[in-house]
Design a protein around this nucleic acid. Structure first.
Length: 454
DNA sequence: TCTGGGGTCCTAGGACCC
DNA sequence: TCTGGGGTCCTAGGACCC
């Protein structure tokens, strides 16, 4: 048996904790570059603002309806998330943090009234942190997700579901008939694992509700769709197929990509941006103690513009897997130069560290054999391993990460990119995304902490 | 004028092998 | 005109998630 706890309109709720005047007001939080709405208060949803709605299409609501838009403050949301997850963990013995605003809790072995327990945890999170959340309980993860959807919808749209299911919905307490009746009033597209495409296909085939999907037979599911959807249908029937993942594996790839604040037409700002993206990805690479076997770089124009389109990517293999920022940046810039072409208004670039593997012991890492060099030369791989001593680089990276953790990101930077060009402020501001509505780092920056006056 | 970022899994099809 | 069968591995693309 599982619970799914999910923060309501999470980013907006985090902002409201520190600006109570935003309660009851339509609020959206915008994505990087102030591009799209990625979180919406209930009032903003009522105005018709969709998830991912481009800001330029809804900004007129600022004047007409008092819509407030804020730039995303991920440092704040991450910190508030850590606090919420700590309190959520009190619900049961095992926890899977599924995303920044939700977690699954394994409830096996928990005695007593689980519904009451869920209400208590929900109240604690609201009282101690100021964050509203909803909790769903079900026999499987998919049913817990569905229960959470019902708990949220019952709260937000009175009359859509029985009022007693608002905030905390425990499907395991219901009779079979009541359980089925709820599934029969839930659109199939609300089921976890059913997206827009599969949802449309299912409706086309006459499968309109969660109950319809639960009752589809195996042959139809495998023939018409995939094992993934079959698993989802089993889970809806109460047969647990997806385990709690309380010890997540290291990531298989690490990406850092950004849209630019303004179109970029020259190489210099690209070099700076790609160096920065690679450095950020490398920090996360070392945090999970992995090494990358290759670096992917891409640049592209905006698909929304009529101007000439250009989109290229390249994978640069490394002679040896590494977690050294200098080598990763070297590979990334090598790739960038190979795909860069002047004459285009580039809107976005990114770096992905791929072919990740667990870091080798230091001794094995330091060894470069004649045979491996010969192989890499023959295969045309670029040997960035020769850029510096591996043994010293490990200590250097550790120092780099510690200094930046202590004094803030960017205190120490790789100079390789900047050394090749004069430093002009306009170079940086060209690729840096817009963040015109950022709130303070209330809980993550000493100088921006809220001040309470008696 | 202005349209996010970061992941995972599954499958089909091509390359290659015998 | 006529062109096997079976297997593995890899990759690109599609679909999903938040």
């Amino acid at each position: 048996m599982f619970a799914l706890l999910d923060g309501n309109n999470f980013y907006v709720s985090c902002e409201r904790v520190f600006r109570p005047s935003l309660q009851g007001v339509p609020v959206v939080v915008l994505s990087n570059n102030d591009g799209c709405a990625i979180a919406r208060s209930n009032e903003a949803k009522a105005l018709g603002v969709r998830m991912g709605h481009p800001w330029f299409q809804i900004r007129h609501l600022e004047a007409s309806d008092g819509l407030v838009a804020l730039s995303a403050n991920f440092a704040l949301y991450g910190d508030m998330s850590d606090r919420m997850m700590s309190l959520a963990a009190g619900l049961g013995p095992t926890q899977e943090v599924y995303s920044i605003d939700e977690c699954f809790i394994g409830l096996d072995g928990v005695r007593g009234d689980l519904t009451a327990r869920a209400h208590a945890v929900r109240s604690r999170i609201l009282n101690w942190l100021g964050l509203p959340c909803c909790i769903g309980l079900g026999a499987t993860k998919t049913l817990a997700k569905l229960a959470n959807h019902i708990a949220k919808t019952a709260e937000r749209k009175p009359g859509s579901y029985p009022a007693e299911l608002a905030q905390v919905c425990d499907l395991t307490r219901l009779s079979e008939d009541a359980h089925d009746a709820l599934l029969a009033t839930t659109d199939v597209g609300e089921v976890w694992g059913v997206g827009p495409r599969i949802g449309a296909q299912l409706r086309e085939a006459g499968v309109r509700t969660a109950l319809d999907l639960a009752r589809l037979d195996t042959a139809t599911l495998r023939g018409g769709w995939s094992v993934t959807l079959e698993r989802t249908a089993r889970e809806l029937q109460g047969l647990s197929c997806i385990d709690l993942d309380h010890a997540p594996q290291p990531r298989q790839q690490i990406a850092c990509t950004r849209s630019f604040g303004q179109p970029v037409t020259t190489l210099a700002p690209l070099i700076e941006a790609v160096s920065e993206f690679t450095s950020r990805a490398a920090v996360r690479l070392r945090a999970q103690d992995s090494a990358a076997g290759a670096v992917l770089v891409f640049v592209r124009t905006s698909p929304f513009r009529k101007s000439p389109q250009y989109s290229r990517s390249v994978v640069v293999p490394l002679a040896h897997p590494t977690q050294n920022t200098a080598r990763l940046v070297g590979a990334a810039l090598h790739g960038l130069r190979s795909i860069y072409q002047s004459g285009y208004a580039l809107a976005k670039a990114g770096v992905m560290l791929v072919q990740l593997q667990a870091c080798l012991p230091r001794d094995a890492q330091a060894g470069t054999t004649v045979g491996s060099v010969a192989t890499s030369v023959r295969q045309g791989e670029f040997d960035f391993e020769s850029l510096g001593s591996t043994r010293d680089a490990g200590h250097l990276m550790k120092a780099l990460d510690e200094v930046n953790a202590r004094w803030g990101r960017g205190t120490l930077k790789i100079a390789s990119a900047q050394a090749q060009m004069p430093r002009h402020d306009e170079v940086a501001t060209q690729w840096t995304g817009k963040q015109e509505r950022r709130t303070p780092g209330y809980t993550t920056c000493w100088s921006e902490m809220p001040v309470v006056r008696a």
